[in-house]
């Protein structure tokens, strides 16, 4: 019994002595122990608010604005005749604005079908690193509404404003696995108020991934299979009219700018167009070159 006590005493004494040696490192260790282990949201899951065509979980932070120019050229199938598609271009101009750090709104204008779009995006849950309150994935909601402003195809019949409207709802699940790999899976619903044939609601599953190459460049790839109505609409030869969207490309980031250069078979720059109205097969000669150019401005002048 006494022997045991002795041992315990010696143990404790040694332990406390040990605590006292090498005091500078000791102080650091002391801080270490008291550092609250609260988790922080992960940053830079993706480089930009778009992976390529698809939305990512990234938002503009509060009082920050993103001016975005997106271009898609024609397919390369006509070769040198139309300079591998560069003669044909359609674009989208948009302004995205961060209302809060997690809530972003935006407006855009598309060449295709002279479409205006407005949208909102909210980070419902943020992925957080290990520690207290950690959370393994990011969950983001994205919803938009678009107005096609082409003149009505048949002005003689009764045309309603509501037939110009289309909607998209999307939940974006994201995970940054490590510094090098991030993945997004986005169940999507696109609703057209007016369709010629087929269904009004198209469901799709967006799948995207981003791979870091260097500190400033990334390789991205995405594929958005539709889950219903794939063969509802046929062209004159009996082939399906619409195809799934595929894209791959690079992000190049230079301070306030992000350049996204890519190849995609999809035309159109909003979900309504590239998910449900893409008329190009996934094949080498139906790929088109495109780029997104993003410039961020900060209006946050508050003293921190």
């Amino acid at each position: 019994m006494i022997n045991q006590m002795k041992k315990i005493f010696t143990g404790i004494a040694l332990f406390i002595f040990a605590l006292n040696v090498s005091a500078q490192d000791d102080l650091l260790n002391m801080i270490e122990k008291e550092t609250p282990k609260t988790s922080t949201p992960v940053y830079a899951t993706f480089k930009s608010s778009r992976i390529i065509n698809m939305q990512s979980n990234e938002n503009m932070k509060a009082k920050h604005m993103d001016f975005r120019i997106q271009h898609r050229f024609g397919t390369t199938e006509n070769g040198a005749y139309d300079f591998f598609g560069l003669d044909v271009a359609q674009m989208r101009l948009s302004f995205d604005y961060g209302v809060t750090d997690r809530f972003m709104i935006g407006v855009g204008r598309n060449t295709m079908n002279k479409t205006y779009d407005g949208y909102a995006k909210y980070q419902l849950m943020q992925q957080k690193t290990k520690g207290k309150n950690s959370f393994p994935i990011g969950i983001t909601y994205y919803g938009n509404m678009a107005i096609n402003t082409l003149t009505f195809a048949d002005p003689t019949r009764d045309n309603f404003f509501s037939s110009r409207l289309t909607y998209c709802n999307q939940i974006i699940f994201t995970r940054k696995f490590n510094d090098y790999i991030s993945v997004a899976i986005s169940p999507t619903m696109v609703h057209h108020n007016l369709v010629s044939t087929g269904t009004n609601d198209i469901y799709a599953l967006g799948i995207g991934a981003s791979f870091k190459i260097t500190r400033s460049t990334r390789f991205n790839v995405e594929y958005i299979p539709r889950l219903n109505g794939r063969n509802d609409i046929k062209d004159s030869k009996g082939n399906p009219m619409y195809y799934d969207a595929f894209a791959f490309g690079f992000d190049i980031e230079t301070g306030g700018h992000v350049f996204q250069l890519h190849f995609t078979n999809a035309q159109g720059l909003i979900e309504q167009q590239f998910i449900t109205e893409n008329t190009n097969k996934i094949a080498f000669n139906t790929l088109r070159f495109g780029f997104n150019l993003s410039r961020t401005f900060s209006f946050d002048k508050s003293r921190k």
Binding site: L27, I31, T35, T40, A44, K61, S216, K304
Partner: peptide
């Protein structure tokens, strides 16, 4: 001894903040 968490630095420009931490 002093210690500071790098992500606790606040920038006016949040993009810079992200780059500071990431890059």
């Amino acid at each position: 001894a002093f210690k500071v968490a790098n992500p606790s630095f606040e920038f006016h420009n949040k993009l810079m903040q992200e780059h500071f931490n990431e890059k």
